[in-house]
């Protein structure tokens, strides 16, 4: 395969990032619970993908999956660094009045509900029900067993189902 120039690589990356940024942001918003942290997580994720993209032997077969995995692990890594004084992505802040992503009642309720879940449970829910991945795919992204994903999924779902029913009722009225 001919070696791509830096400009070509950058253009390819930019096209990829433009296509994927919104979906990554939606996942990040559900994980982080705030616009600013979500934005930071997505930028950090895409920056890591970019750095990999530009490496001489860094060809990525499935950039979307790679980006999603990177986002997941960056988020969980932020949680693990909590004790080091780094700003953890999983710390859902108090409601910010100027958070442009906080809008509807349902959205606020979902954010509050997700904030009560362990970070890994949040990841499972987002990958399963927003990204529509299978249990095995979620396990792969998170680097844990399929059994662990099922357990977390069941536990977390119990918390969210009620809100799902309520939100649908609200919309039907």
């Amino acid at each position: 395969m001919p070696k791509r120039s830096g400009a070509s690589q950058e253009q390819e990356f930019e096209e990829f990032a433009q296509a994927r940024a919104a979906q990554l942001y939606r996942s990040a918003w559900l994980l982080c619970g705030s616009h600013h942290q979500a934005e930071d997580l997505v930028q950090e994720t895409l920056a890591k993908v970019y750095a990999r993209w530009r490496r001489p032997f860094g060809r990525i077969d499935n950039p979307s999956a790679y980006a999603q995995t990177t986002l997941t692990r960056t988020f969980l890594g932020g949680v693990r660094r909590r004790s080091s004084g780094e700003q953890p992505y999983a710390d859902v802040p108090e409601l910010l009045v100027d958070d442009p992503a906080a809008g509807t009642d349902v959205r606020l309720a979902l954010r509050a509900l997700l904030a009560e879940l362990p970070a890994a449970d949040r990841v499972v829910l987002v990958l399963r029900y927003l990204e529509d991945l299978s249990v095995d795919e979620v396990a792969d992204r998170m680097g844990i067993s399929s059994g662990a994903v099922r357990n977390r999924s069941m536990r977390a779902l119990e918390r969210v189902r009620g809100l799902a029913d309520d939100s649908l009722r609200i919309r039907k009225v």
């Binding site: 930019e14 940024a21 942001y25 895409l46 920056a47 509807t104 979902l110 927003l130 939100s167």
Partner: peptide
């Protein structure tokens, strides 16, 4: 459906995200 509907209309400044990421 809840997840998708809730996040579907979240405003995303894609251009800023991409710029910052690069």
């Amino acid at each position: 459906t809840l997840f998708r509907d809730t996040t579907a209309d979240v405003d995303v400044d894609v251009a800023a995200l991409v710029r910052g990421s690069i």
